[in-house]
Design a protein around this nucleic acid. Structure first.
Lengths: 152, 152
DNA sequence: CAAAAATATTGATTGATTAAATATTTTTTG
DNA sequence: CAAAAAATATTTAATCAATCAATATTTTTG
């Protein structure tokens, strides 16, 4: 098991600013997301449980919602999966999701904010563009080629 | 109640091409989606039930999945909502979703296919870009202004 | 450190969606 | 066109993520 030292001070300040108390579970959730971006509640729960054996899934969910509401973390929800969370926020970056294995990768926004300008906005006041690129990650592309060969 | 006559022949051909049988429920689902784009399974179920009183939600779900798998319809899933379906496919168009009332509107893809080109693709082979623009629709913007005035 | 506020834990519940088994409809074939 | 085969529909039960409510514990504040 690898121990990674994280500086949680910036988060502690951020939580204070948002009038959120500094609880063990909350900090553990943030730490987990720093190390494992794009995790879902279940995965976070299992990781946090290693540190805080008595923790509950409910606490994980509540914290994820509280943090996401305040923009401290960001929630993405590719269809067919549970919600995923990440600490990288405020840059409107996008995601690549593998149809096969579910791998998730970040990719930058095209420009400063063109993503917030749809072709026709129907009078909508747009504040967020959520972009998911669906496809196959490199390993799954290779597996597909192997499978195709076998099928011949 | 307004009766709208729809020509379902193109769909019948499409279903044949995909080796799907022409069942009453399936055609009713397609007809419903033509008239009410961005409907969820429950809404479709209720509308279809008016025509086919004995129908089941299970049949609706199975048909939606079968049609979506073959690209005959498209599924979108804004976070926090059930899956929505539409018959407009193949043009990689995007969606505007109102945070307040949930209204959904189509908006065209920016260009022919730039949406399929993320900044950095991490070696992914991308085949679809799913874009949801979040914001407020015109009526909800007005309501917000009213509410702000009242609060003063 | 004690009171007040916020959060955590526990247990039950919801809601969308899927699974499995049987009945019915649609398609195919002679 | 009728019977067999295949596909689909219906019914009932189950799953899974996520939320709600009530009580216990922790954190914050003065």
């Amino acid at each position: 098991m690898v121990q990674i030292m994280l500086n949680l001070k910036p988060y502690k300040n951020l939580l204070k600013q948002h009038e959120l108390s500094l609880t063990a579970v909350r900090l553990a959730v943030l730490e987990t997301l720093e190390i494992h971006p794009h995790s879902d509640a279940d995965k976070i729960f299992n990781i946090v449980k290693n540190k805080i054996a008595t923790t509950s899934k409910q606490a994980i969910y509540k914290n994820l919602n509280a943090l996401a509401e305040r923009g401290i973390i960001r929630e993405i929800k590719p269809k067919g999966r549970s919600s995923l969370y990440e600490t990288r926020t405020g840059d409107n970056h996008h995601h690549l999701v593998c149809r096969q294995c579910g791998a998730v990768r970040d990719t930058d926004c095209f420009d400063h904010a063109p993503c917030l300008e749809p072709m026709c906005n129907h009078g909508f006041k747009v504040d967020e563009a959520e972009v998911i690129f669906w496809g196959l990650c490199p390993p799954c592309q290779k597996n597909l080629i192997k499978t195709e060969r076998k099928e011949k």
